[in-house]
Design a protein around this nucleic acid. Structure first.
Lengths: 145, 145
DNA sequence: TAAATAAAGGACAAAAAACTCTTTTATTTT
DNA sequence: AAAATAAAAGAGTTTTTTGTCCTTTATTTA
C-alpha cells in the first residue's frame, strides 16, 4: 500500500502526462496516455472520465479529440487530484483509524503525525501540475514502470 | 485510505492496548482487547495470531491465558508492527506507484516525497511501543472510536 | 483425570478496489 | 449525409481486503 490508492497513482501519472503533452499543444488519446504511463487502458479511461467531469482535465470527442488541459487547469495544485479521488483523509485522518481523534481526544500517535500530515498537505496544495512539465520534457523524470 | 491498512491500524491499537495492560502485569484476552480498541473480534484474533507467531506479542492458551508482552517486546520500535503487516513500501515505495523509481530514474514527485518518507521512517523506527503506556494510563490518549 | 478456558487454525463470506468489455454519444472528415 | 474517430456510459468480472464462524489444540483448575 502506498500513500495514495492505485487509482490515484494512475490519475496523477496520467495528469502529468496530459499536462506535459498539452504544454506542447494538442490533445492526446487514452491509448497513448495509458501506454505512456504504463497503466490499464480501460481502467484509466474511467478515471479520466471522472476527472473530466470534475473539470480537472478537459476532453473532446471525435476525430482529433482526446484529453487536454486548459491554462487554468495546469495551474491547479496536486491536491485537487488527490482529494477528488482519495478524499481528504490523507490530510485529516487519524493514523490509527479513529474517527474521533483530535487535539482534545488524541490517539497515541496524534501529535507524532501532525507534522507529517501538514507536510503532505503543504506539498500537495502548493505544487501545481505544470511545475513538472519542464523536467518531463527534458526527460529528467519518468512516468513509466 | 489512511497511511496504514485497516489491519495495521487494528494491530497498532491492539499492541498499544496489550502493552499498557502488560505494564500493569497480567494477560488480556481477545474479547477485552477487541472491545478495548473497538475492532472486530475475530478479525483482530487473526491479526494477533500473526503478531504472536512473529514474536511481536506473546500469548498463552488456557485459563488465565491471553496476550501479553515481554520486556524486550515492549522496547520494540513501532516499525516492527508496521513492517510485519504492511511491508516496507511505506518507507521505500514511490508516491506514483512506479517500481523503478530512484535518484537516478525519478518520478516527478521523487524528491518531493523523500523528506516525508524519511520522517515517517524515523518516527516509526525511533519510537518504542512502551513509550505510550504512561499517557494511556493517565487517560490522556485513547484507542477507541 | 475431567471440565473449563482461551488461543490457534481452517475454511468461508462480504465488501471494496481494481480492472474489462461492449454499446452509445458526440464530433469531424470525406 | 455517411463513415470514421474517440470519449462517455453502462454493466459487468476479478482480485484484494476485511470480516465471520466453527473446530482443534494447549493449558489450567477443580
Amino acid at each position: 500500500m502506498g500513500i495514495f490508492s492505485k487509482t490515484c497513482e494512475y490519475a496523477l501519472r496520467a495528469v502529468f502526462f496530459i499536462a506535459h503533452r498539452t504544454s506542447e499543444g494538442g490533445r492526446v488519446g487514452i491509448k497513448e496516455i495509458a501506454s505512456g504511463v504504463d497503466s490499464p487502458e480501460y481502467f484509466l479511461a474511467k478515471i479520466l472520465q471522472d476527472l473530466s467531469k470534475r473539470g480537472i482535465v478537459q476532453s473532446a470527442k471525435g476525430p482529433n479529440g482526446g484529453f487536454y488541459m486548459e491554462e487554468k487547469a495546469l495551474k491547479q495544485p496536486l491536491s485537487n487530484i488527490v482529494q477528488a479521488i482519495d478524499g481528504k483523509s490523507i490530510f485529516t485522518g487519524c493514523a490509527l483509524g479513529l474517527e474521533i481523534c483530535s487535539e482534545k481526544n488524541p490517539c497515541p500517535l496524534h501529535n507524532e503525525f501532525i507534522d507529517i500530515r501538514n507536510q503532505i498537505q503543504h506539498l500537495l496544495q502548493n505544487t501545481t501540475i505544470e511545475e513538472f512539465n519542464e523536467d518531463l520534457n527534458l526527460g529528467l523524470t519518468t512516468l513509466k514502470k
